[in-house]
């Protein structure tokens, strides 16, 4: 690997128009820092060796000040920071002012999953799918605590705040599947609040919208509503109990009593989950007060199948 490739590998690949602009600023600052670092660090070591003296110290006569030098190393960094500020500011404005023709996709964060809704809410999906070559604006909010959307290959990041909308935009330039992280600490499964950004052709995007319209199955809702973060399907306990084979069984509760996991119990556990917590698990589940009847039914049907 040659030197240039080594340098380039410092940053992940660029997959949006903004990534190039962000990286331009990065490399400007990088070389300025290398320049100053190559003055300060070798000079420190050189002086320590060059002026080393053993034995009893005598009187020393080095300069105690130099107006020119001190003006010089005040003025040069001052000019430099104006320059860097302007580069950073221009890029920042480009990152936050979305083009007027940008397509809006709504993003909802919750502990610990994402929902992306398209075309006025008629399509919802747990991964972000976007078309290549046109601007996309994410309008984001959170249902509980603060989260943050971070897509490294686009160099974009923005917090999602409850009761408030924030936004970011990008224009993808390369088809592929990339990572999207939550980068604001949000509790237990913070490091699992990771999903994908799928950059697809316009054709595939329209197909995606068409395929995902209409009612969701329980299995789709399992990931879409974020159940997956805490409940496994294979019997292993996570933050909450696994769904495998629990339908119809007797569940021991934290308060010492027990309950049969029937339709009523499951519904109760979705809209007011902490009223009947199973023994050995924390009362950590958010309440899905507004979940529509059809979705609850679909989830119950899905759980019945998990023998």
């Amino acid at each position: 690997m040659n030197f240039n490739m080594l340098l380039m590998s410092l940053l992940p690949k660029q997959a949006s128009t903004g990534a190039a602009e962000s990286d331009f600023a990065f490399w400007v600052v990088f070389w300025i820092c290398v320049f100053f670092g190559l003055i300060i660090i070798p000079a420190t070591i050189y002086f320590a060796i060059r002026y080393r003296k053993k034995g009893k110290p005598g009187l020393t006569n080095g300069p105690t000040h130099s107006t020119f030098l001190e003006f010089f190393w005040t003025a040069v960094p001052t000019l430099m920071i104006f320059f860097i500020f302007v580069i950073g500011f221009v890029g920042f404005m480009d990152f936050y002012v979305a083009p007027s023709d940008a397509e809006e996709i709504r993003v909802t964060g919750r502990q610990w999953s994402w929902t992306f809704s398209y075309a006025n809410g008629s399509v919802e999906y747990s991964e972000l799918t976007v078309p290549i070559g046109r601007p996309i604006k994410l309008v984001m909010s959170s249902e509980d605590v603060i989260h943050s959307v971070y897509i490294p290959v686009f160099r974009v990041k923005m917090d999602t705040v409850p009761n408030r909308y924030s936004s970011l935009w990008f224009e993808a330039t390369e088809i592929g599947s990339y990572d999207l992280y939550c980068t604001e600490y949000c509790g237990d499964a913070h490091s699992r609040m990771v999903t994908k950004v799928n950059v697809v052709s316009e054709e595939d995007y329209q197909k995606f919208l068409k395929d995902n319209q209409g009612e969701k199955s329980g299995e789709q809702l399992y990931t879409l509503r974020g159940c997956v973060a805490c409940h496994s399907l294979d019997g292993s306990p996570k933050i909450g109990p696994s769904w495998k084979g629990i339908y119809g069984t007797e569940r021991p509760l934290a308060n010492g009593s027990s309950v049969i996991a029937d339709d009523n119990y499951i519904k109760q556990s979705i809209i007011d989950p902490n009223s009947q917590v199973v023994k050995g698990y924390p009362a950590a589940m958010p309440a899905y007060v507004d979940m529509p009847e059809e979705e609850i039914n679909a989830i119950i049907d899905f759980m019945k199948e998990l023998k």
């Binding site: 600052v29 820092c33 420190t44 500020f85 990152f95 974009v156």
Partner: peptide, 28 residues
């Protein structure tokens, strides 16, 4: 000497984070 080297690196990398468009990428 260790301080001067560490502080040079710590201080200079702060410039990246102070630069708005770079901080969007590197924050958190």
């Amino acid at each position: 000497i260790a301080f001067l080297i560490n502080f040079a690196i710590g201080g200079l990398t702060g410039i990246f984070l102070g630069t708005l468009v770079i901080d969007i990428n590197l924050h958190d």
